[in-house]
């Protein structure tokens, strides 16, 4: 929450009282929040290829370390659009009427390799060779109410044991979860394939299942913006989604369906590399970016059923306010829903 600056705080304090008309920013300059993850590539591609410029949008990227501060920054108006998993924080902000989900992004689909369930070597040796054996085991999550928490409970639900019998361990950050899994301090974790594949290459981590077996059409990440944007500038939202959609199409064509020429694909990887794995040379980052790319919904289509399932889970675990509803969480008027 380090991005929650004093200025932001001041703005928030007075937002309720004064409600200054928010035409503060220049013509159509927008701020887009990204995490350094391959799943944020569509925005990067759309910007690099000029799809946002076509929409008369000037995009500035704001990097975040985690989804939670990004949601807060959107609520405060420092960032206009973001793309992350549905989290307790996001729902809580939506319940307060400041942010809204406007589209879908990463989604599990049967035909594409999706998130994987991993266990440590020690747990595997101890007989945890299938998700059913996770009963009574520890499961790494970043924070309470994160997508990992949801996945752990969905596994428990489907395997027919109590959610409390899978011991979730909040470890705050993905690297901490990876370290704990590798050293056998936690038994299990679930993660997107490009990270999972890197881990299972070593001897310390073994794959024992797929998340798609436990969650139907899991809408892993969504596109969201401030409620103010949806109400006061629907055209801006539409233009952003139009630009993003072209980026999504390129991403899927290049890395998921692999229908693009190698030359074009390499160009796209180079664009992504500016923000993802940028601390490594391109030769090293290239295979990592390409590996295990998951499909991002065309035209940012949104699976309402999956979002509703997630919302219900959050509420059932008291991780979201009981007053939260789909209407408060989602503005389905911008994209195709299914």
């Amino acid at each position: 929450m380090h991005t929650f600056s004093r200025r932001t705080f001041g703005a928030l304090v007075f937002a309720g009282a004064t409600a200054i008309a928010a035409n503060a920013y220049a013509a159509d300059k927008i701020h887009v929040g990204i995490l350094s993850l391959a799943s944020h590539s569509p925005s990067i591609i759309a910007e690099a290829k000029g799809y946002f410029s076509e929409q008369d949008l000037e995009v500035e990227f704001v990097s975040f370390q985690a989804a939670q501060p990004m949601a807060v920054a959107i609520a405060s108006g420092d960032v206009d659009f973001g793309m992350t998993a549905i989290s307790g924080g996001l729902i809580s902000l939506a319940d307060k009427g400041v942010v809204k989900v406007i589209g879908g992004a990463l989604q599990e689909t049967p035909e594409i390799e999706g998130q994987k369930i991993l266990v440590s070597k020690a747990a595997h040796d101890d007989g945890v060779t299938a998700p059913a054996a996770l009963k009574g085991r520890s499961f790494g999550i970043t924070t309470t109410g994160s997508s990992f928490h949801y996945m752990a409970h969905k596994i428990a639900d489907k395997e027919g044991f109590a959610r409390s019998e899978i011991h979730v361990k909040p470890l705050q950050k993905v690297p901490a979860v990876i370290a704990s899994l590798k050293s056998g301090q936690i038994d299990a974790w679930s993660i997107v394939p490009n990270i999972a594949d890197g881990l299972t290459k070593g001897p310390e981590v073994i794959e024992i299942g797929k998340i798609s077996d436990y969650i139907d059409n899991y809408q892993v990440t969504t596109v969201f913006t401030s409620t103010k944007n949806t109400e006061e500038k629907p055209q801006l939202v539409k233009r952003f989604l139009a630009g993003l959609s072209k980026g999504i199409a390129d991403y899927n064509a290049a890395l998921v369906d692999k229908t693009m020429s190698e030359e074009e694909t390499a160009a796209i990887v180079a664009m992504i590399h500016k923000y993802v794995y940028s601390d490594q040379p391109l030769e090293k980052a290239d295979p990592r970016i390409r590996a295990g790319a998951m499909r991002i919904n065309e035209n940012a289509a949104l699976s309402l059923a999956s979002v509703e399932d997630q919302l219900e889970w959050f509420k059932s675990e008291s991780l979201a306010p009981a007053t939260a509803t789909m209407d408060k969480l989602v503005d389905a008027s911008f994209v195709e829903t299914r």
């Binding site: 939670q68 989290s87 809580s92 902000l93 109410g145 909040p170 991780l319 979201a320």
Partner: peptide
């Protein structure tokens, strides 16, 4: 920390 993550 949980309250922060949930924005509660």
């Amino acid at each position: 920390l949980m309250a922060g993550a949930l924005f509660a």
